[in-house]
Design a protein around this nucleic acid. Structure first.
Length: 365
DNA sequence: TGGATTTGACCACT
DNA sequence: AGTGGTCAAATCCA
């Protein structure tokens, strides 16, 4: 077993440990009254794993013999339960490049669903998908489903997604989105945001998949949040006690600090007020419980420093900063960033999503 | 009956 | 040759 193999296994182990810690965290949330101390402890455990994974990723990125971009492998190893413990040759080879001859944005969202949820995963992501194929993947216990936008032919929308259930944890679905929606589904689903296209920055590099001109990048990013959180909202319809968790992985920040905000009676802090404003559709003010997140100090400034909305700061400053710091630390032009969104509640069901954005080199300034 | 799903076949790539 | 992605005919279903 080579050095890379050892590191890979270590990364997998750490990733699993982090997932377990997150599960423990969700179980702790079952208590009638959230224990702040325990929450902080769990959060530190998770942050520790994040740091360790980040260090490992930095040490392995650029040395991986895996085809198709080591950065992608590294980042995904951090939180992705690999299907068979080996790098996925298919997705990393990016068939879109083969088919179209040009780069196509791709981003992956890991979604943890309750065991009762169907195989298709987060069906309600604001878009209508039509399944066009299913295939058994080598080393995967579960088949991979292939979906494309229902309006592919009508509106020439080339967005596709793949849904793959994890081997290790069947409750984890890895949803890989490809291409941007050029169809504006807000007209079809008034209650649903207009789009859940790939990260807004992708539109810079992919003019052929540019979203409607009247859609701002802020709207696009907000839709990412809405997309995942909408799943949560649906799930929470059956629950009475709720705990919302927004986790921004410390692995993507140069330094880390954790912030725990107890919200016993809808008393939102300035940070939460900011969040509440911008996540109003899904972060219900009627919710009582604990909302917390981890972010860098600079991230906190963006959250509560002024009246500028969170996502605007994040999109224009933080996102770039994440990429810059990641690339600088790893010593590579990492084409991948990740965002974790963990949506927990006091019940047994919860969703835990991880976003991995792949984009062409030179995508960000 | 029209749209969605299933599934075997085909193609591109390594 | 092996594998993943897509196509398209058959089938299902509301």
């Amino acid at each position: 077993m080579g050095d890379w193999e050892k590191k890979k296994h270590l990364i997998n182990e750490l990733a699993e440990g982090r997932e377990l810690a997150k599960q423990l965290q969700s179980h702790l949330n079952l208590a009638c009254f959230p224990d702040e101390t325990r929450q902080v402890l769990v959060q530190k455990i998770i942050a520790s794993y994040e740091k360790a994974l980040f260090v490992l990723n930095c040490s392995t990125v650029g040395t991986s013999p895996t085809p198709g971009g080591a950065a992608t492998i590294g980042i995904k190893s951090e939180s992705t339960p690999h299907l068979n413990g080996s790098p996925r040759s298919d997705q990393d080879s990016d068939p879109e490049h083969r088919n179209t001859g040009k780069s196509n944005p791709r981003w992956t969202k890991q979604v943890r669903v309750s065991p009762g949820i169907g195989l298709e995963g987060p069906l309600e992501d604001g878009f209508s998908w039509r399944k066009y194929g299913q295939k058994d993947i080598l080393g995967a216990k579960h088949p991979r489903g292939y979906y494309r936008c229902t309006h592919r032919h009508v509106r020439d929308c080339l967005a596709t997604k793949q849904v793959q259930r994890s081997n290790e944890d069947p409750t984890i679905l890895e949803v890989t989105y490809r291409g941007s929606h050029v169809c504006n589904q807000s007209t079809d689903h008034p209650s649903i945001p207009s789009t859940s296209s790939p990260p807004p920055d992708q539109t810079h590099q992919n003019p052929t998949h540019r979203p409607p001109a009247n859609q701002s990048e802020e709207e696009l990013l907000m839709n990412y949040f809405r997309t995942g959180l909408k799943v949560l909202t649906n799930d929470l319809e059956t629950t009475t006690h709720q705990v919302h968790t927004l986790t921004f992985p410390s692995s993507h920040f140069p330094s880390n600090s954790n912030v725990l905000i107890n919200n016993p009676k809808n008393q939102f802090s300035p940070v939460q007020n900011n969040l509440a404003e911008n996540f109003a559709p899904f972060l219900s003010p009627a919710t009582s419980g604990t909302s917390y997140f981890s972010a860098s100090p600079s991230g906190l400034n963006s959250f509560g420093g002024n009246s500028t909305s969170y996502y605007q700061n994040f999109q224009s400053d933080q996102l770039t900063e994440i990429i810059s710091s990641s690339a600088a630390t790893s010593g590579t032009n990492s084409p991948t960033i990740g965002l974790d969104f963990q949506f927990g509640n006091a019940g047994h069901e919860y969703f835990d999503t991880h976003f991995t954005f792949d984009h062409p080199h030179g995508f960000f300034p």
